[in-house]
Design a protein around this nucleic acid. Structure first.
Lengths: 116, 116
DNA sequence: CTGGATCCAACGTGATACTG
DNA sequence: CAGTATCACGTTGGATCCAG
């Protein structure tokens, strides 16, 4: 249990923001975020409309909010091309690509859940 | 990117329940759940009141709801002792202990976020 | 002590329409 | 095409009170 002990960096009642696990959960814990990240991991670069169509059920508002959050956190990069019609491309940053390890662990655990 | 490809088991619009990653996120993505699991991982066995006091801010209702969810999913086991006053102890199941890998990955990523 | 019941406020999300 | 503005609703969590 030693590796686990090291994960404790802070009691939550001081400041949630300082706990790295909480920070990470804030990134991937929100609805739709996982699907956006999955899409970008699989496809590489995607445009706003691509993402909108790929994830049936998400509204343009929610998508734009999530993308902005991810951009602000340095997980997704946004590139605007000065064309007509406008073109904007989203792709994962190097930091964003590091999320793969988390998803693999989540999958491992999720499969255990299904065995029940 | 091959290991990642394997994580894709399903498009979300069929049924979220069948994607192991979504299932796993449902377990640990809810507010307070991480703190409950952390407490149990660190302390082993805890009583209702212990958890209530350890996590400043959580309401008894939310705690009982979370604990029941975790119990239903087979992550936490609940033991009732026929005493007066009543005593109920919570502890992680073997499945619950497998969450450690996820938390370690989350911490790894969370630390990268802080470097910004 | 454990935790269920109830009421309520806040937030996230969806639908839709509209602009640059 | 790529979003933003507005509105409304459902779900979640918090506060309290109370019961076994």
């Amino acid at each position: 249990m030693n590796a686990w002990e090291e994960t404790i960096t802070l009691d939550h009642d001081d400041s949630d923001e300082l706990c790295p696990i909480v920070s990470a959960l804030e990134v991937i814990g929100t609805k739709w975020t996982f699907f956006i990240l999955r899409e970008l991991l699989l496809e590489g670069t995607r445009r706003f409309g691509d993402l909108l169509r790929a994830m049936d059920g998400i509204s343009p508002k929610t998508l734009s909010v999530r993308l902005r959050e991810l951009e602000d956190r340095g997980i997704v990069s946004r590139t605007v091309y000065a064309e007509v019609p406008p073109r904007v491309e989203y792709t994962l940053t190097e930091l964003g690509k590091r999320l793969e390890g988390i998803f693999l662990e989540l999958k491992r655990f999720g499969l255990l859940l299904e065995e029940k």
